[in-house]
Design a protein around this nucleic acid. Structure first.
Lengths: 116, 116
DNA sequence: TACATATGTAAGCTTCTTGTTACACGAGGA
DNA sequence: TCCTCGTGTAACAAGAAGCTTACATATGTA
């Protein structure tokens, strides 16, 4: 129990953000260096609005971060880069994370649950 | 490169299977020991058909395995248990897995892709 | 026979996700 | 002024995912 890891809800959000081929490709592209939106869209071969949506999802999960900067010629460019996330995913880690789940609990009352 | 890990498509399927609170709870319950469907449904507090669907998804991803057995009184019981999966999830692992993605590729021709 | 247990599955509905097209704004260069 | 390049976002269509209710089957027991 040296590494407590993320909350159950946070973990679900991260996993959901990564469970998509296009977003995996975005991570792969950013792993080779930071890039701005329009260039990244051309690189991967998707439309900007679509990439924008996926970037928001990845950033909301804390897997990438974006910073709005100004290029030498004055244009506003939004650069994204990967954060230093490193997850371990196995049964015990998931069981630990599941304890802190709050979302779709059919009856999450504080009452004691009988064991079968 | 000691551990090549799963294919990109397989990884996406695993992550998608885990990116769900209810399925996370199923994994957590099975991490404490194998169980059969009806009992597991009561334990977690969901309907059997719903649990059945999630179990299929988890089994398709290779995270759990089920075996149909007969109880001492002759009833058919399907027991599920977790497999020994243990994933490492970070930017370089994902970048490596993204190379083997086949699914939603806008133009996945074998031709060389020019670098910007 | 009737009831309890176990299994699986099909139909239908609702919500989320994915992707497109179109629009709006700002700044530099011809 | 007009064009190009950058940003963001709203509206809409199509598909997948999640969940419920209902049905069908098999076996042991009262």
């Amino acid at each position: 129990m040296t590494d407590d890891g993320p909350t159950g809800d946070d973990l679900v959000e991260m996993l959901a953000a990564l469970a998509n081929p296009l977003r995996l490709r975005i991570i792969a592209a950013l792993a080779g260096g930071r890039d701005y939106v329009s260039h990244l869209a051309r690189e991967i071969g998707v439309s900007r609005p679509l990439l924008h949506m996926h970037l928001r999802r990845l950033e909301a999960a804390g897997l990438i971060v974006g910073s709005l900067e100004l290029s030498p010629d004055g244009k506003a460019m939004k650069y994204y880069e990967v954060t230093g996330f490193d997850l371990r995913v196995n049964a015990s880690v998931l069981a630990e994370a599941a304890k802190t789940l709050t979302r779709p609990d059919p009856d999450q009352g504080p009452g004691p649950k009988e064991h079968s």
